Simulated assay, not measured.
Amino acid sequence: MSNVLDTLNLTGKVALVTGGAGLYGRQIVAALAEAGATTYIASRGIEALEAVAQEERARGYDVRALPLDLGDQSSIDALVATIEAESDPCDILVNNAVTRNPEALWGGSMDAYDKALRVNASSLFYLTHLVSEAMKHRGSGSIINIGSMMGTVGVEPANYAGTNMHDNPSPLYFYEKGGMQNFSRWAASILGAHNIRVNCVAPGGFFTDQPAPFVAAYSERTQLGRMANTTDLKGIIVFLASDASAYITGANIPVDGGYTAK
């Protein structure tokens, strides 16, 4: 029987994180790299990703940046082919990237909605299927979808009182993140026979110097009394990516300080 700490070690594993330079993506990348995985990060913002990769390599970790346009199927194909040629097929996939089309507001056009859904939904299905096919041949894999607590609850207008922040965000984000939770359950049921686990992580609000009234109201709405920070997602990512969670699949795990438990 392995020591429990050994089961968290990702040495020899290959991970792909879509995005990787954003608020949560940055700590996801650091967590996987620190646990030992060769970690690929990919998005259209290749300059920002390369800066992240260089920073992690300076710390002694193997992080590599590659271009990816999630709206372009051929770009997804090229990314997966490059990773498989350079290393091995992915052991770990973290679907983290998201686009927020400022035109896809309530009352927006169908074209605006379609543009956002292509990146946030259609590419999710396509990339997950593509990576899972290689995982099937290995007989194992972990897929982690980064959702949001907004996929579980609606808008809380009281959080925005006394600020100039918008209390009526796009319905697409809520729709997509709610759908991601159930897609994770569906994919887990399809891929479980191949020992491929699929789980969804639902983070809460990240503190980025928002107006004081919002921070106070949001923090009071949680059970831990604060917003998320730069390390809060690291533990759950390594846990779900590793053999420590070998019997967990189809789960939606909130990492929101208890926001959705109230």
Score class of each variant (00 low, 15 high):
Leu117Cys: 06
Arg118Asn: 08
Val119Glu: 02
Val119Lys: 00
Asn120Gln: 04
Phe125Leu: 08
Phe125Tyr: 12
Phe125Gly: 02
Tyr126Trp: 07
Tyr126Glu: 00
Leu127Lys: 00
Leu127Met: 06
Thr128Phe: 01
His129Leu: 12
Leu130Cys: 03
Ser132Trp: 10
Glu133Ser: 15
Ala134Cys: 13
Met135Gly: 00
Lys136Arg: 15
Lys136Glu: 13
Arg138Ala: 13
Arg138Tyr: 14
Ser140Cys: 15
Ser140Thr: 15
Ser140Tyr: 15
Gly141Trp: 10
Gly141Cys: 13
Gly141His: 11
Ser142Arg: 06
Ser142Asn: 11
Ile143Gly: 12
Ile144Ala: 13
Ile144Gln: 01
Asn145Trp: 13
Ile146Glu: 03
Gly147His: 08
Gly147Ala: 08
Gly147Leu: 11
Ser148Leu: 12
Ser148Gly: 03
Ser148Phe: 09
Gly151Glu: 05
Gly151His: 07
Thr152Phe: 15
Thr152Gly: 14
Val153Phe: 05
Val155Met: 01
Pro157Ser: 05
Pro157Arg: 06
Gly162Gln: 05
Gly162Val: 02
Thr163Asn: 02
Asn164Tyr: 09
Asn164Gly: 11
Asn164Ser: 14
Asn164Met: 11
Met165Trp: 08
Met165Glu: 06
Met165Asn: 08
Asn168Pro: 02
Pro169Lys: 09
Ser170Met: 04
Ser170Arg: 05
Pro171Asn: 02
Leu172Arg: 01
Leu172Val: 12
Leu172Phe: 06
Phe174Gln: 09
Lys177Glu: 00
Gly178Thr: 13
Met180Arg: 10
Gln181Glu: 15
Asn182Leu: 14
Phe183Val: 03
Phe183Asp: 05
Ser184Arg: 02
Ser184His: 02
Arg185Gly: 03
Trp186Thr: 12
Ala187Thr: 06
Ala188Asp: 04
Ala188Pro: 01
Ser189Glu: 12
Ile190Thr: 13
Leu191Ser: 04
Leu191Ala: 10
Gly192Leu: 07
Ala193Glu: 15
Ala193Met: 12
His194Lys: 07
His194Met: 05
His194Phe: 13
Asn195Cys: 11
Ile196Arg: 05
Arg197Phe: 10
Arg197Lys: 05
Arg197Gln: 06
Asn199Thr: 04
Asn199Ala: 12
Asn199Asp: 10
Cys200Asn: 09
Cys200Asp: 03
Val201Cys: 10
Ala202Cys: 15
Ala202Ser: 15
Gly204Ala: 11
Gly204Tyr: 09
Gly204Ile: 11
Phe206Leu: 01
Phe207Leu: 14
Phe207Thr: 15
Thr208Leu: 14
Asp209Cys: 09
Gln210Glu: 11
Pro211Ser: 08
Pro211Glu: 10
Ala212Phe: 08
Ala212Cys: 08
Pro213Leu: 03
Phe214Leu: 07
Val215His: 04
Val215Asp: 02
Ala216Ile: 14
Ala217Leu: 04
Tyr218Glu: 05
Tyr218Val: 00
Tyr218Ala: 00
Tyr218Thr: 00
Ser219Pro: 01
Glu220Lys: 09
Arg221Asn: 10
Arg221Lys: 11
Arg221Trp: 06
